[in-house]
Amino acid sequence: MRRITGHLRARDVTLWTLIVPPTSWAVHFLFSYLWAAIQCAKAGGFAWYPAIYWGGTALALVVIVAAGLVAIVQARTPGDPPPHEEGTRVDRTRFLAYATGLLAGLSFVGVVFTALPVIFITDCR
């Protein structure tokens, strides 16, 4: 475990890392609306292949949690205490990792709230 966290701390956090959680949320949101439109057009309800929807939701949540875990490990990189206002590599890494962790939390909640209507709404009226 120590080897994995050391490897993750050595990785650079970039803006590409930062956009993974909200992009997963956006893709899940688009997937949810397309799935609902197809279900309502074909079957008149949400009963047709619900495992596909739950699989897509689980995949989005796994990607978001993985990005959040990487961000937590990188945010705990040893260095000066916050605020991270210096222009050093460690401060930039910790700032971007902290922002990625916050976006991962927000994206996780967004995916859960996007999936809730499928649980509670069973028809297309």
Rank of each mutant, 00 (worst) to 15 (best):
R3E: 04
P50D: 08
V13C: 13
L106M: 14
G68S: 09
S32I: 10
G110E: 09
I38L: 01
P82Y: 00
T23Q: 10
F95N: 09
A97L: 00
L15V: 14
S107L: 11
Y98L: 11
A60N: 04
D80C: 01
I4C: 07
D91V: 00
F46R: 01
R11N: 14
V62Q: 10
G44V: 00
I52W: 04
P21H: 12
Y49F: 13
Q39T: 00
F46W: 02
F113D: 03
G55A: 08
R76Y: 09
A37R: 02
A43V: 00
A36K: 05
A10F: 02
I72K: 14
H7R: 13
I72F: 14
A10T: 02
V20T: 15
V90F: 05
R9V: 01
Q39P: 02
G79E: 01
G68L: 07
G79Y: 02
A67W: 09
A75T: 02
A10G: 10
W54V: 13
K42H: 06
F29G: 00
H7A: 14
T88Q: 03
V27R: 11
V112H: 06
P21Y: 10
V73M: 06
H7L: 14
I19D: 12
L59S: 11
V20E: 15
W48K: 05
Y53G: 08
S32Y: 05
G101E: 07
G101P: 05
A104K: 07
A97I: 01
A75R: 15
P82D: 01
G105I: 06
I19A: 10
A99E: 13
G45A: 03
L18C: 12
S24I: 09
P78M: 04
L69Q: 11
L116P: 06
P83V: 02
G105Y: 06
V90N: 01
L34N: 02
V62F: 15
A75N: 07
I72V: 15
L8T: 09
T14A: 12
R92E: 15
K42W: 11
R11P: 07
R11G: 12
Q39H: 00
P21W: 09
P83A: 04
L59F: 15
L15N: 13
L34D: 00
E86H: 02
T93C: 06
G45T: 04
G45N: 15
I19T: 13
L61G: 03
L69G: 13
P21F: 11
L102T: 11
V13D: 10
I64Y: 05
A41V: 04
A43P: 01
L18W: 14
K42N: 07
F113V: 10
I38D: 00
L106G: 15
I64Q: 08
A71V: 11
R89H: 11
F31T: 07
T100M: 13
D80Y: 01
A66I: 15
P21K: 06
Y49E: 08
L96A: 07
H28R: 05
A97G: 04
A26C: 07
A97S: 15
T100K: 06
T57G: 11
S32P: 03
L102S: 13
L103T: 09
W16C: 12
